[in-house]
Design a protein around this nucleic acid. Structure first.
Lengths: 365, 365
DNA sequence: CTGAAAGCGCTAACAT
DNA sequence: ATGTTAGCGCTTTCAG
């Protein structure tokens, strides 16, 4: 390769890696030779010498959780755009497996790690240890204070958007169907509801049912709260909302006529449910961009700066599940009864109204 | 490290890599020293020397397609279990991007590639070129004959399960709602329907509507076929089925009372729709196991054996969308009316019946 | 069974 | 701006 371009191996290296200025002529010759010979630099050798693999580890709790595919998509695209490759690990919600994967990724000399911790507490040690070795950004979920940089949606702002919307559309007997635990999504959404619900109705802040982030819990929760005849169910994520919606329909309730249902995350299923579920959309592309920005900052030498906790503002997506209650007694099919909803024969069940992000918060943790 | 265990670096290497027999005593000393020093072998150096990175590239057309997360999960687990790591690439359904990712993965010296090609035709050149350089297994979709080993579900067997089920439950005016194109899933499912539908009704084989694999097409298709008053819609995948179900409910049709709906793939949404969608479950763990098995076979030296096309038998999952038609005019909510379906207050909308895999086909392409 | 030494392909220092 | 050289950390001959 050096021979083919008529210069030294060092020059070839400098052209291809762009580490140092090279004569324009020489550079062109080298590139031509590379093209001709189909030369591909050996990343293993490069990694060995330069102590950087151009590789980032992505550790997820459960790829089958419908929120993560979109995140993975944005992250891989963002990282590939800067020439990095992504090593993926799925730890099946098991912090022990997670620790093993993190260990393996470090042995493979990833330049950095992106971690969505499986468990707020039990992931902490492994994450903290890893963060001491390479730049590490926590995503979506926290892992205790002071562990690493983190990027997540502003759960409080999201919940506020929901409560404002419900207030504006006249809902008063609101219940929160959330998840137990100290994980950030569960705790923050719960707290934000408790803090904001009093505006709707003085009792609303206390009307809270807690389970986990699953469809099954959504179904079960309806049985717990339905006899209190709520006019809105604020669910802590979309899976819960899907379950609640199903059970309400089973019971013959009209959504949104009798009761509104809202979710959180805007997973694909939220749009596809019938009626479509009003939810809080996480700014996934922005989350990915922010995470890679933090990573690059650390990789570029900001090793010892203060830890950053970036919170991005979400957006409310209004769909039929929280639409206006029919003034007259409509037909039994709820959302189907709303007139003017249909623009064409086979259109999506309804157009979503989007309330844009009101603010963006960034600051030390 | 050699110093700490009191022997040479060569011996250390032999213990850790297990390449050659080593004295039991020495081995123990080395392992103890490794533990103590927290020694982690450097994969980059190992890769450089041994020309194997212990890494597999996984190239997907769209991670956000709800069928793939489960596949990714099983593949990563299977590969990690044998000490390999997975480099993930999502090419956003773009064959040009796909070629770029494949190129990058090869430059990174992946030991092998797993590819779900984005396009039956336009992915072919890049895949064939890659297959000439490393072991490569095609998954889920084909890429023309003779390109590489492949693993996929037996689409014909799956369609036969659906048609048998519909025949057994008395459906006759059946329509197929499929997808155009030559991609294996589209073409094989379409062909299998055409071949098997005549048993139901002499006209059934001709009742075919073609669009793409989307929810939107499912909705649109209903408008095309509904005036013919079908008693069953056989959809080529679950997304189409979800769309069809939505539009049927909008139109006030009773599913399964008036019309049964079936899907294909068993994505999570199929179970969560209301009524749950009867579908053909792809044997995802087995697909993953089979793909890794083929890969290992090639990596172990079977470089030049004949190409293998493995087809695994699917399983029919019967849910409410194809349940028996109510004998009397039940209430309007279709599946909800079936008595004895409810075991407890908040149970899933219904129990699924599973028809196990009838056969498994393996053979040269 | 173990040790000594060569070298995988590249980049970083250093020299020019 | 370019060439020369050493060596990244490991595995693998080749001797012993």
């Amino acid at each position: 390769m050096a021979r083919a371009s008529g210069c030294s191996v060092a020059t070839v290296s400098r052209v291809l890696a762009g580490t140092r200025p090279v004569g324009a002529d020489t550079a062109r010759r080298v590139r031509a030779a590379a093209e001709e010979l189909g030369y591909r630099p050996n990343h293993a050798a490069r990694a060995l010498r330069s102590r950087a693999t151009g590789t980032v580890g992505l550790v997820l709790p459960q790829i089958t959780n419908p929120f993560y595919p979109a995140l993975v998509r944005e992250l891989t695209h963002a990282l590939h755009a800067e020439g990095r490759a992504v090593l993926l690990a799925d730890c099946d919600d098991d912090p022990v497996a997670e620790a093993g994967y993190i260990d393996d990724l470090l042995a493979r000399r990833v330049d950095a790690l992106l971690v969505v911790p499986a468990d707020e507490r039990r992931s902490r040690d492994a994450v903290a240890a890893a963060a001491a070795r390479v730049p590490l950004v926590l995503m979506d979920r926290g892992c205790g204070p002071g562990v690493a940089d983190s990027v997540a949606v502003d759960n409080s702002a999201g919940m506020a958007l929901v409560l404002d919307h419900l207030a504006a559309t006249g809902r008063r007997r609101v219940w929160f169907v959330g998840a137990e635990g100290t994980a950030s999504a569960a705790a923050e959404r719960r707290a934000a509801y408790a803090a904001g619900a009093a505006v709707l109705d003085e009792g609303a802040a206390g009307r809270i049912a807690l389970g986990d982030f699953s469809v099954a819990w959504g179904r079960a929760a309806v049985d717990l709260v339905w006899e209190a005849r709520p006019d809105a169910l604020v669910c802590a994520n979309d899976l819960i909302a899907v379950g609640a919606l199903q059970r309400l329909q089973q019971l013959g309730a009209d959504v949104p006529g009798d009761v509104a249902v809202t979710g959180f995350d805007d997973i694909p299923m939220a749009a596809l449910a019938a009626p479509g579920i009003t939810t809080v959309r996480q700014p996934v592309p922005e989350l990915a961009a922010e995470a890679t920005r933090l990573l690059n900052q650390r990789l570029a030498g900001g090793e010892e700066g203060p830890q950053r906790a970036v919170r991005l503002a979400p957006e409310l997506v209004v769909r039929e599940s929280s639409g206006p209650r029919p003034t007259a007694a409509g037909d039994e099919r709820g959302a189907e009864a709303a007139p003017g909803d249909r623009r064409g024969p086979a259109e999506a069940p309804g157009r979503a109204t989007r309330v844009p992000a009101p603010r963006q918060v960034t600051g030390p943790e």
